[in-house]
Design a protein around this nucleic acid. Structure first.
Lengths: 193, 193
DNA sequence: CGCGACGTTGATTTGCCTCAACGATTGTGG
DNA sequence: CCACAATCGTTGAGGCAAATCAACGTCGCG
């Protein structure tokens, strides 16, 4: 049962009671997503918090030169949402796209607000979840402004081994902020050692 | 009264009641900080949430080549803390330093946990505060991996005009991820138009 | 007043990008 | 299930944005 994965995930932070679980069952929607299907496209308002039950997603921007810039990936038991657009209700500049066939659970904004207001516990859980994401993002920014492409690639392999075989090199290159060609050069040069 | 600035700040999110205000008075510490004084140095564990009442701070890393990389600035009514070190209680790799003489309010970890546990409202307020910071950071990362130095400088001037006259160009250069020399070139070239 | 940080400018170097071409994979529609 | 198209990874040549190193004038602070 997919929703059980979400309940387990939330229980890891603060155990839910009967009522909260019942409410979650009522207000969370399970969806199947095909490879290359979008959860969000630039220009739309992001209306859901998305919890990945199975599969892999990327969130990215497309710039004026039609280049893709990956902001994050999300796999099983992770959340992926354009929080800025979700809260401001302004059009997003981002895409969220399935890299693999996937299953997700969506919580719409009115429902999430319901949880925040009526079950204060959710504030604490989601505060902790976003704090962790914040720290990760901060480390990544630090890395991006202070290290070379080669080092960022090594760190990516070290920090996210579980992603390596699920993503193309092009997607990884976009995530660490370089071109696929240059990543290829880093790899071939590294292999020759 | 400095603590009133903190109360006003929190009231902007969710109004506090008498008891919460009393608790805050008991558990928040006001400190005066000199220019160039540290709130945190690399190697230490970050033990406080710091709220800026007056003045300006920077948080940065120093790399192996002894170069400074600015992660963020904080001025009046903003928070500055190494959240990663604060929560993990592991040594930080960051410095937090006063750019101007300042006054701050510190909340130690046991006290913050007290608020989170006994006044659930605080979870909601701090969730929102960090969500906003998260969005800002995400936009900055996106910019960093997708635009030129010149554009980042323009955006910095546009987004943070209130910081421009309070920071040296060297500090701004470090924030947008370029050398002071190159920022100087951008500026002189721009002036010649 | 003197020292150290800051901003500027020049010359040179380099990390990474661009464009182009080609073979190898992948996935998809008939 | 195969064939063809589309995407992906690799390599080469050339170019550019930004870094490095060095020198020098200026300013603000102690």
């Amino acid at each position: 049962m997919p929703i059980q994965k979400l309940i387990n995930h939330l229980n890891d932070y603060l155990p839910l009671n009967e009522e909260e679980i019942a409410d979650l069952n009522k207000r969370a929607t399970v969806r199947k997503i095909k490879r290359r299907q979008y959860l969000l496209a630039a220009g739309e308002v992001c209306k859901f918090y998305n919890f990945v039950v199975e599969g892999c997603f990327k969130m990215y921007k497309i710039d004026e030169a039609a280049k893709e810039h990956n902001l994050m990936f999300a796999i099983e038991n992770e959340w992926i949402t354009d929080i800025g657009s979700f809260h401001s209700e302004q059009p997003s500049q981002l895409y969220i796209e399935a890299v693999e066939p996937a299953q997700i659970i969506q919580i719409a904004k009115p429902d999430l607000l319901h949880f925040y207001t009526n079950h204060l516990k959710f504030n604490r859980t989601f505060r902790v979840i976003i704090e962790d994401q914040f720290v990760e993002l901060q480390n990544r920014l630090l890395q991006t402004i202070s290290t070379t492409a080669e080092e960022r690639y090594f760190r990516f392999m070290k920090d996210y081994p579980r992603l390596l075989n699920r993503l193309s090199n092009t997607q990884i290159a976009s995530y660490i902020g370089i071109t696929p060609e240059f990543l290829s050069r880093i790899r071939s040069q590294q292999a020759s050692k």
